[in-house]
Design a protein around this nucleic acid. Sequence first.
DNA 1: ATTAATCCACAGCATCTTAGTCGGAATTAG
DNA 2: CTAATTCCGACTAAGATGCTGTGGATTAAT
Lengths: 172, 172
Amino acid sequence: MLWINDCFRWDHREVQYNDDRCPRSSLTVELTPKTEYALLALMALIDGSAQGKAMKVNQITAQHGAIPERYLEQILLVLRRGGIIKSIRGARGGYLLAREPQSISLLEVVSLLNGSQNAPGETTSVSPEQSAIHQVWEQIHQTTRTTLDQTTLQDLWDRSDRHRSSSPMYYI
Amino acid sequence: MLWINDCFRWDHREVQYNDDRCPRSSLTVELTPKTEYALLALMALIDGSAQGKAMKVNQITAQHGAIPERYLEQILLVLRRGGIIKSIRGARGGYLLAREPQSISLLEVVSLLNGSQNAPGETTSVSPEQSAIHQVWEQIHQTTRTTLDQTTLQDLWDRSDRHRSSSPMYYI
DNA sequence: ATTAATCCACAGCATCTTAGTCGGAATTAG
DNA sequence: CTAATTCCGACTAAGATGCTGTGGATTAAT
């Protein structure tokens, strides 16, 4: 006797990964550890950079308890390649901001770290319903993009400074 | 002489899964396939529900080419448990909206599907710098939340309808 | 020249999330 | 009863993320 299941079993010999699923627009910014580490590091670089002093990785991590050094190295590498910071190699080396903190937007940082999102995306004949959904999400993306674009590293520092003055060093 | 590095070296003898890494506020809404399927299904239910007619899963997937039936079943299950739709079991069964399309916000849908996010989160002594970062992201979350809360299923349908009338059925 | 400090690079690994599947149980119509 | 359909829990596969390990390459101090 032949069971239905026997007929179907073969359908799965290769997983049929939904042909037309595109890599959805992935610029819904999440605050991942990676992003947070990067921003903390950049803020840490502000002081030294103003004085032309390079900072070492372990000096950066020393300020904030829980950043894994090796991981931060990788992140800094990406930031350097993206032209946000520059590095000095060899003994007594370290990192410096490549530009003024006012000219570094959060959007630039997160875009860099999240890789090349927004691939040109072949619009595979979306239905009106899909289109409506995408519109809403596109709107959301747009506003977050704007917010991140208008917020600079300097802004971030100003905010943290305001905090610092209001409640003095309750962290190690 | 004792170097600072020597004091720290032991930290790595066992993988130190960054104790205080909390499940970041995960309500940065991404348009995942799951969410899209859910919204498409809900829109498909609008017509039938108005007439009190339940729709079967395969009727829903028939409208939109690429939704895996079995997967959609699961999603509908969640929507039902969340009180957004109701179901009729057995032969001639199917699904209906549990409420008016105007009273179903997108925020409710995505919150439901993304599980219980925003766990109470013990705020583990953040530094001022971290706090500044979190503020920015919190602001972003707030605006997206507002947008999603103000957009209802009915709005979505209106949009898609507008599209449909302007360019008649170019999809199968 | 040697050595030490520091960045650079890539490969690998553990965990988590997501998308999707399977098999079958419960329910209802005819 | 039988067929249709929802309900349910477990399972798998692939990818992303957050690291770690190892070994360079480059420069400064001696």
